[in-house]
Design a protein around this nucleic acid. Structure first.
Lengths: 363, 363
DNA sequence: CTGAAAGCGCTTACAG
DNA sequence: CTGAAAGCGCTTACAG
């Protein structure tokens, strides 16, 4: 009652018949080298239980037959996949080929961090409305999930809860909040907001508008806003509610619209702090459309330091988030989680990058 | 001699003991619904062999237990993975978080195309020097591979050959060449080069420089170059070899350096056609550093239409590659290959996008 | 339409 | 250090 039709009857072991069909298996290597299949498996995975000489012979045979371990089989047996999944979620956008460049940078650094640690990366773009908890980890395609995206936190929060309840290992890029159900890693948005406000105050601005949602729906923007308010207050400047306009979508269009709204309110302002670079770009266009000069009439700053920020006209002052460190931190913490080690939330440092958009006078 | 310790002895079938340990399996669903495991498997995969009533019961039980098919097991058994792999290869770059934005767009559209067709996407960034043939397909983690990247074609050509020899199904984004070992899909670079040249001639330019490698090492650039030369010739303008400078790396720095080289040659030119937008951005900076005005003194055009092209100062005239269509075409053709259907190479249309960088006078 | 059985290609106790 | 066996959780002939 054999479980498999191979191995062939003894005596055939040295025959090259093993080449004939399909991809070679560990049994083929075993026949070729005259050891058991278990030994082949051990040797190839670097087990110390195999003698050096045997290992060499087995590796040589494997190379010769171009043998590769079948991951589906090894994953099934060992119950882990050596794969992480990246879920990039976003508000549904009309033009679907435009992803926020900041997330694209993150994606790059996450991919590299995974590769360096010997993990593969599955990637998936999801609408916030999708049932994205029900995926990779459940089907055993991934050992853990990295969540990345802007969106209404209160709307996807129960999805996070569900993920956690199912025991799915996940880390999320985002604000670090007191009562969150998951592990999150984010940059110090509060400090970033402070840095921008301090810089704009230094430039002599006093009526600094904020473009971006300032509520717990968008905690990252909210923290940036709070940092800005706190620094203004320390400087004895009152944050005028008429100078805050929502721009929830972190797109150029949302930024344009928010700036328009601000302009229509007809309250004076001498600076604009946009909650993201994309919003800043839209605001820049709205100001240009009204012939308002940046930085001469209005100073402008963004957040993220996406690649195009330095190529804008004028180049955009913004807050650099270290995406390389962020990607590595996300991956390392997820791997800790997978190994069932204790993990804490992290707050990564940010750095103000001053460019011409916020500086009065010539560069 | 049971192959598994479950199912438990008859009579326990209705017990909720199935919940107790780990993730549920198809056997758990079978016990719960009183059918065989085979039927569960069939029902869940939508086999017409199962009665509607049974299927409903099984689905309900599966939902209740939050059962998900283990992909490792089903992939192992059915010998396909429902996954494609994307290999993004690039010349080694110092700063590893900066990927060519054009490829990032492609990545987005490929990801979406995969999702729409029910496939998962593994992604991996590779150095050209790596042995990247030896990966996903061999280990059965992916059914096929999409190759994407700039690089020295002659250098990675035998890797393609090796891939093909191993029977790995793959498609590549790139130039469509006569004797290539694989299926490639690319945009009509020749026509794009023609369009740029025709436009610049129309603007009155006669001494049009070309920044980018013009050899079979970089077939895409070469095709753009050939399109440019052919259109010049048709207009009775001789392409001056002194006006062509290599910029093999498709980075801003390479563009800057190429423009510098051109300027040092001290030959007159009234336009620059950069083989990619990144090269054009570098050239723009080099020209600005010498106080040469674009477009007043030198018209400038790029290729790719990366997102930042329209935000440059001045906005960059360039050639739009339809990344959405490109991603879909790549995925569809790879799926055809996997189904062993005949597949041909494709040439996708391009579109000239005229912006201020190439237009004399005010916009 | 349904079930019992085989088997995908590994890893990992277990025994020596 | 090595081998024989069990078993990971499915899919898919095969038989009814």
């Amino acid at each position: 009652m054999p479980l498999r039709d191979r191995p062939p009857p003894a005596g055939h072991q040295e025959l090259s018949a093993v080449h004939t069909k399909g991809k070679p298996t560990s049994f083929d290597i075993a026949h070729l080298t005259g050891v058991s299949q278990s030994t082949v498996s051990r040797a190839l995975r670097g087990s110390p239980l195999v003698s050096e000489e045997t290992r060499q012979r087995i590796k040589a045979a494997a190379d010769q037959l171009n043998y590769k371990v079948d991951k589906n089989a090894s994953n099934l047996r060992s119950q882990h996949s050596g794969t992480l999944a990246l879920l990039l979620f976003e508000d549904p956008t009309a033009d679907d080929s435009h992803i926020n460049p900041f997330f694209l940078s993150m994606l790059g650094s996450i991919t590299r961090a995974c590769a360096l640690r010997g993990y593969d990366l599955l990637i998936s773009f999801q609408q916030l409305s999708d049932d994205w908890h029900a995926d990779y980890a459940d089907t055993k395609k991934a050992d853990g999930i990295i969540l990345l995206g802007y969106g209404d936190y209160l709307a996807y929060r129960d999805k996070l809860q569900k993920l956690a309840a199912q025991g799915t290992r996940s880390v999320r890029w985002g604000a670090v909040l007191p009562d969150q159900p998951d592990v999150s890693i984010g940059c110090d948005n509060f400090q970033g907001g402070q840095a921008v406000a301090a810089h704009l105050l230094e430039q002599g601005c006093r009526r600094i508008a904020f473009l971006g949602d300032a509520s717990s729906h968008y905690p990252e923007f909210f923290d940036r806003y709070r940092g800005y308010v706190s620094t203004l207050r320390e400087a004895g400047v009152q944050a005028d509610p008429a100078l805050q306009v929502d721009a929830i979508e972190s797109t150029e269009q949302a930024g344009y619209d928010a700036a328009e709204t601000l302009l229509q309110r007809d309250v004076p302002f001498d600076a604009v702090f946009a909650a993201s670079d994309l919003i800043a770009i839209g605001a820049m266009r709205a100001l240009a459309d009204r012939n308002i000069k940046v930085p001469e009439q209005v100073a402008l700053a963004g957040f993220d330091d996406i690649p195009m920020a330095r190529f804008l006209n004028p180049p955009l002052t913004t807050v650099l988030q270290d995406t390389k460190l962020a990607g590595e931190t996300l991956v390392d913490n997820l791997l800790s989680l997978i190994r069932r080690e204790p993990v804490e939330t992290h707050l990564l440092p940010v750095k103000l990058v001053v460019r011409r958009s916020s500086q009065y006078g010539p560069p």
